[in-house]
Design a protein around this nucleic acid. Structure first.
Lengths: 238, 238
DNA sequence: CGATGCGTTGATAACTTTCAAATTTAGTGG
DNA sequence: CCACTAAATTTGAAAGTTATCAACGCATCG
C-alpha cells in the first residue's frame, strides 16, 4: 500500500544520514544502507555549519547546485513559485535530512528556513571526489538519490487523492519523520501544508477539524497534533 | 508476463547481432547530453533488441531493476496500481526515450508496451562499468537522471492545476516529444491520458471537446489532435 | 489598547466525478 | 466486403468535492 512505501523511503533516508537525531531507527530499516556513517562523517568533517533565521533563503531557484545541505536543527522547505503566483512546496526537511540533492546543475527549487535553522553545507564536488575513493560514500549518495526520486513519485500518488487522504498521509509522514510518536509538533504553517498538498488552507483546516470530529486526531494547539487512531488514518491512504 | 524474462535472456545472448537496425533518434533526446553519442552507441552495441506486443509487460513493480531500456519503435507506459484499484501512469516513452532509469535497486513502477514496440535492453551493470572508463557516458547517465527527476517534478506542478491546464500541458508536451509539429498522433488511449493526468476519462474527453470549441485544437479522430493555437494552450499552463 | 498575522468557520460558486446512455470505432467471422 | 459484437469515446444530468469570498476568533506585539 501507499503508506508503506512512503514510510519506508523516509526511514531509509533517515537511517542513511542521521544519527545525532534523537529518534531511534528500527533495526530492519537500517539494512538498506549498511555502509554505516561514512557519508555523515564526511559531511561533518568537510561541511560548514551555517545558521539561517526563520524565513530566510538558503538557496534560490536557478542558482548553481554546488552544495549539499544537511539539516542539523530547525526545519527547511523547498518550493517553487508558479507564474500564476501559486507556490508549490517541494518538500519539508527535518534534522538529519539532506536536501539540495536535485541532481541537476542548477537548483530547480528554492529553499528557505521554516524556523531558525542550523544547516551543514558541503561542496558537492568534494563529496564526488570522496565518492571516487570510498565506494560506501558513493553507495550512500546513490541511495539518497533513489530515495529522493521515490519521495517525489510518492507525492504524485498523493496528489491524485482526496483532501482527506492527503492530509492523513501528511500527518502519518510527519509522525514518522519528526518523532515516530503520536504527538507531532508541526514546524510549518497551514499555508505551508496547503502548498505542499496542493490544497487551500481552508480545506486543510476543515479536514483537520473533520478528522478531529471523527476522533482520528486531536488538535490541542494549531501546531500540535496528536494521532489518536493511526489505523483510521492509514485506511484513508487508499 | 513471465515469458518476457525468458525471452530477455535469450535475446541478450544474441545481443550484438540484433542491435544493427536502429531507429532514428528524435533530436530533443540528444540535446540533453552534449557529449555526442557515446551512451547511445554503447546501448546499440551492448543491448539486446526485444519486441513486445501491444499491452504486454516489459517489467513489473518490485522486480530487480537490472536493465535500462530504450524505445526504438512504438511506445511504452510505466504505471503503478494503487491499493484502491486506481492506476497512476508514471510516464510515456516514445522512440529514442530511455526508461527503467529509476535509480533504485527495484523497479517502483511496472512498464507495458502501449503499441507493439521494439526496445533495446541493456544491462545496467554493463553501463556502469562503461561509465567507469568513459566519463562522457557517466555524464550522460547523470544528465538522464536529472532529466527524469525534473520530469517528475514538473508533473507535480501539473497535478495541482485544473483539468484544462493539465490537458493543455499534456498536449504541448506530446507535441514536443512526438514530432514538434502541430499534428499529433497519440499512441495512448483516453484512459491512459486520464491516469497520467489524475483525471477521469470523461473529464479528459470533455476538456478536449471544450478546447476544440474554443478553437485551440482540432480532433479529426480520437487519436489524432491538431494544435491550432499553441499560445492559448501555453497560457493555460499558468 | 489597536493592529497584525494566523487559523477557523460559514455560505456560495466552480469544478470534477459518478452514473447512465448514446455514439463511434475496431475487431471478427461469415 | 458486410454484418455483428465488443470496446472506446463522447455526451448528459446529478451528486460530491474543493475553492472562493467573507467574517470571526485568538493570539502576539508594538
Amino acid at each position: 500500500m501507499h503508506t508503506q512505501t512512503a514510510n519506508r523511503s523516509d526511514a531509509i533516508r533517515r537511517s542513511a544520514v542521521s544519527s545525532r537525531n534523537a529518534a531511534p531507527v528500527p533495526k530492519h530499516q537500517r539494512d538498506d544502507a549498511m555502509d554505516g556513517h561514512a557519508l555523515e562523517q564526511s559531511m561533518q568533517l568537510m561541511g560548514a555549519m551555517m545558521a539561517y533565521p526563520r524565513n530566510s533563503e538558503i538557496f534560490g531557484e536557478n542558482e548553481p547546485a554546488d552544495y549539499l545541505y544537511k539539516v542539523v536543527s530547525g526545519s527547511v522547505r523547498t518550493y517553487k513559485i508558479l507564474s500564476d503566483g501559486r507556490r508549490q512546496i517541494g518538500g519539508f526537511y527535518m534534522p538529519g535530512d539532506i536536501f539540495g540533492l536535485e541532481f541537476a546543475y542548477e537548483h530547480t527549487l528554492s529553499a528557505e528556513a521554516i524556523t531558525d535553522a542550523k544547516v551543514l553545507v558541503v561542496k558537492r564536488s568534494t563529496l564526488n571526489a570522496l565518492a571516487g575513493h570510498d565506494a560506501s560514500i558513493a553507495r550512500q549518495l546513490f541511495a539518497l538519490t533513489a530515495c529522493e526520486l521515490r519521495r517525489v513519485q510518492d507525492r504524485i500518488l498523493l496528489l491524485i487523492k482526496s483532501a482527506q487522504e492527503r492530509v492523513a498521509s501528511f500527518l502519518l509522514e510527519m509522525s514518522e519523520r519528526v518523532s515516530g510518536a503520536n504527538s507531532i509538533e508541526l514546524p510549518m504553517s497551514r499555508q505551508d501544508i496547503a502548498d505542499y498538498l496542493g490544497l487551500t488552507i481552508e480545506t486543510v483546516s476543515r479536514t483537520l477539524t473533520s478528522l478531529e470530529c471523527s476522533a482520528a486526531i486531536e488538535v490541542p494547539t494549531s501546531r500540535r497534533i496528536v494521532l489518536r487512531n493511526r489505523l483510521a488514518l492509514s485506511r484513508m491512504n487508499g
